[in-house]
């Protein structure tokens, strides 16, 4: 037991409020907003990709393919530095504007994850039999009504387990904001560990927390999947 004998479990107990109130709150906020934003934007991209308009499908496809070819770490850096300039351009300001860490990462993750969610939504839309589309038009719906009331609800429902699975991936990916020295859950654990020279305890604890949350969530997704399978 020599390995664990000089473990300081107190450090974890003492830093719990900081770890969760600061760190986990950031992590979960980022996860939730980026998921919602990513699904919405992703659905639009998927529709653009499947549309019969000129240029739009190719544009959407390039966006998705480029995003999916790049490492998230690179995209985090790139957008972090790019955003002040884009803000300047949009606001027509004299100099690059300040963008806070939270807004910067929220925008980055939303744009990045939208590429992945769009692939999920595209598969979902394509899984709807063409007869449904025909039936929608047949009762006199317009394209957008047909999408809104017939195709998308079914596609979304069919893809719900996959969307949640991607959300778990996203939850784990948020730890990469560490590269911007942001205080997410891992960042908080890392800061405490470095301050007190207790990296071992803090990283083990962080791993355990991520593991429990992700595993629980993925077991819930499995249950959801079974339920949807029965309902069909």
């Amino acid at each position: 037991m020599s390995v664990f004998s000089d473990f300081d479990f107190n450090i974890i107990a003492r830093s719990l409020p900081y770890l969760f109130r600061e760190g986990m709150t950031f992590t979960l906020t980022l996860t939730a907003i980026a998921t919602i934003g990513g699904v919405l934007l992703g659905t639009l991209i998927a529709m653009a990709r499947l549309s019969s308009l000129p240029v739009l499908p190719a544009l959407a496809a390039s966006y998705v393919n480029v995003m999916r070819a790049l490492p998230l770490v690179l995209v985090i850096f790139l957008f972090y530095f790019l955003m002040p300039y884009i803000g300047q351009w949009i606001l027509q300001a004299d100099r690059p504007i300040q963008v806070g860490a939270l807004s910067s990462t929220i925008i980055t993750f939303t744009l990045f994850e939208a590429a992945y969610f769009s692939e999920i939504m595209r598969a979902g839309i394509q899984s709807i039999p063409r007869g449904q589309v025909a039936a929608g038009y047949a009762i006199g719906l317009t394209y957008s009504q047909m999408m809104r009331y017939v195709v998308l609800p079914q596609a979304f429902r069919n893809m719900l387990p996959v969307i949640f699975t991607q959300m778990i991936v996203l939850f784990q990916d948020t730890s990469l904001v560490y590269v911007l020295s942001i205080t997410d859950f891992l960042g908080a654990a890392s800061k405490v560990g470095q301050r007190d020279g207790r990296l071992t305890e803090m990283y083990l604890f962080a791993a355990a927390v991520y593991f429990i949350i992700s595993l629980t969530a993925s077991m819930l997704v499995k249950r959801l999947q079974a339920r949807i399978a029965i309902a069909r």
Binding site: Q172, L176, L186, L199, T200, Y203, L204, A207, S214
Partner: peptide, 23 residues
């Protein structure tokens, strides 16, 4: 599968780099 799938890669790297040598 569940063990390696449910811990973020960054955290796993830190475990291999900082924690395992200590243990």
């Amino acid at each position: 599968v569940e063990l390696f799938r449910n811990i973020p890669l960054l955290v796993q790297l830190f475990l291999w780099f900082f924690v395992i040598p200590e243990m």
